[in-house]
Amino acid sequence: MSVLRPLDKQPGLNTATILLVGTEDALLQQLADSMLKEDCASELRVHLARSLPLPSSANRPRIDLIVFVVNLHSKYSLRNVEESLHHVDATFFLGKAAFLATGAGRESHCSVHRNTIVKLAHTYRSPLFFCDLEIEDFRATMAQRLVRVLQICAGHVPGVSALNLPSLLRSSETPAPEDL
């Protein structure tokens, strides 16, 4: 079982790589397409994975940001993400990992409570985004945000490091993770 580590390979020139982990293949593909449509100075690479660990044989570039996509309508998607989290090195959670919860808009369809994913994100000290990926506009906005975060994580924004992200992304309403 290979554990995924950040900064274990040399970065590609002007290349930023994001890894989207989730069971919803169609949604992930759509999100990836919207991200690639974004106007961005860096060269974007989007990898999609159903679950971790990744096959060790593949020749892949350095991964700068992992986004775990949880569909609140399916318990399987949450369990899959929870299992995948074991194969990620702890240093990834210093700003290079994020959670994305989709489907919170239609609460009647939810089989996973919102608080569960909030707690999960707090446990891993990582930012949590809510977005209904099925809606085009929301997906575009989220893609834009993710591209910005990815650029920071890949070190393409001078002066800002991924280490700053957890504290910068914390909104003033949500308490610090230690308080929960």
Binding site: Q29, D33, E43, R45, V46, H47, L48, S51, R60
Partner: peptide
């Protein structure tokens, strides 16, 4: 499983 990477078409800056 890992899918082949989707890559952005343009290598140069968009401008």
């Amino acid at each position: 499983m890992e899918m082949p990477p989707g890559e952005q078409a343009a290598t140069e800056p968009p401008d």
